[in-house]
């Protein structure tokens, strides 16, 4: 650990102790050079006990959608995932699953994103999804009434949504809520007809308990696949919150989007608040 990192750690811990017990921060934003370190810091400041409870089986859902390398910022940063998995275990989780239903073949995306490697190092079980894992489920949303969902997402005690902030040509951006499209099956292109309502429906159905937003690198154009390094900017930030609406509003702002439609719909449906107090560390 470098001295600077050590002081940062002290600051984070101080913030944690100052706020701990009485008022928990709504959201914590950490900034720094190392994606692993800032995620760790943010999670600690947010409160490890809010990450997982003793004996939980936790599903960590990063974006592992594309056959791209971490620098291309099409998938969640592998070190952010590693920090989240470790935090879940530190909080007492019994088992942590890491999975995604990717757009490109899983055996490539899992490896090329670096997520399989880092998640395994942190002790997570990396699950390759199969069709036999799908179950039809009542979603009960405004647009999505019924859909095929991966069994694992229903069986775990809690879901931690770990998206990356990216440009998306239809929705404008893909952040926390849209990331949940990775734990459903079927012909997902159908959701694009009413994408904003659909992702809110999914969020209301799955109710992740925690959102860790990776904005270490942000893909600003030609998303969600990207590929050009010139479309990627280094923002070196991570946000931890339990509010999907606030999380997406925060991420969208990084892409220059104010109040995108699904954020508004999410707030109207009572999933969270667009404006939240963010503790910056």
């Amino acid at each position: 650990m470098k001295r600077r990192d050590f002081f940062r750690f002290l600051m984070g811990s101080a913030a944690y102790f100052l706020l701990g017990g009485k008022e928990k921060p709504q959201a914590v934003e950490a900034k720094g050079e190392d994606p692993y370190e800032i995620t760790r810091r943010a999670l600690r400041a947010f409160g490890l006990e809010r990450v997982a409870s003793r004996g939980d089986v936790v599903l960590v859902k990063p974006n592992i959608g594309w056959d791209r390398k971490p620098e291309q910022a099409a998938n969640t940063n592998p070190y952010v995932v590693k920090a989240v998995v470790e935090a879940a275990y530190e909080a007492g989780a019994k088992k942590v699953l890491v999975l995604d239903n990717p757009c490109n073949p899983a055996k490539r995306t899992y490896y090329r994103s670096g997520i399989a490697r880092e998640a395994k190092k942190a002790g997570a079980e990396v699950v390759f999804l199969r069709e036999s894992h799908l179950v039809k489920k009542k979603i009960g949303g405004e647009f999505l009434k019924e859909w095929e969902v991966y069994r694992q997402a229903l069986e775990v005690d809690r879901i931690i949504d770990v998206p990356i902030v990216k440009h998306h040509s239809l929705a404008g951006a893909t952040i926390a809520m849209k990331n949940l499209m990775g734990i459903i099956g079927g012909r997902r292109g159908y959701l694009h007809r009413h994408i904003h309502t659909a992702v809110v429906d999914l969020t209301a159905f799955f109710k992740p308990t925690l959102y860790v937003i990776d904005a270490y690198r942000v893909l600003r154009a030609h998303g969600p696949v990207g590929g050009n390094l010139s479309d990627v900017i280094l923002t070196k930030r991570v946000l931890v919150t339990s509010d999907p609406v606030g999380a997406d509003a925060w991420g969208a702002r990084l892409l220059g989007l104010e109040n995108p439609p699904w954020v508004k719909i999410g707030e109207e449906r009572g999933l969270g608040l667009r404006k939240m107090k963010v503790l910056k560390i």
Binding site: S169, H194, I195, G227
Partner: peptide, 26 residues
């Protein structure tokens, strides 16, 4: 095509296009 024929939002093809500058434009 959904947008052309029915006026519905779709662009799934553009979303998935892996060419870094997108070979499918909207």
């Amino acid at each position: 095509c959904l947008p052309f024929a029915y006026g519905q939002e779709c662009i799934v093809c553009e979303e998935h296009c892996p060419v870094p500058t997108k070979a499918i434009k909207l």
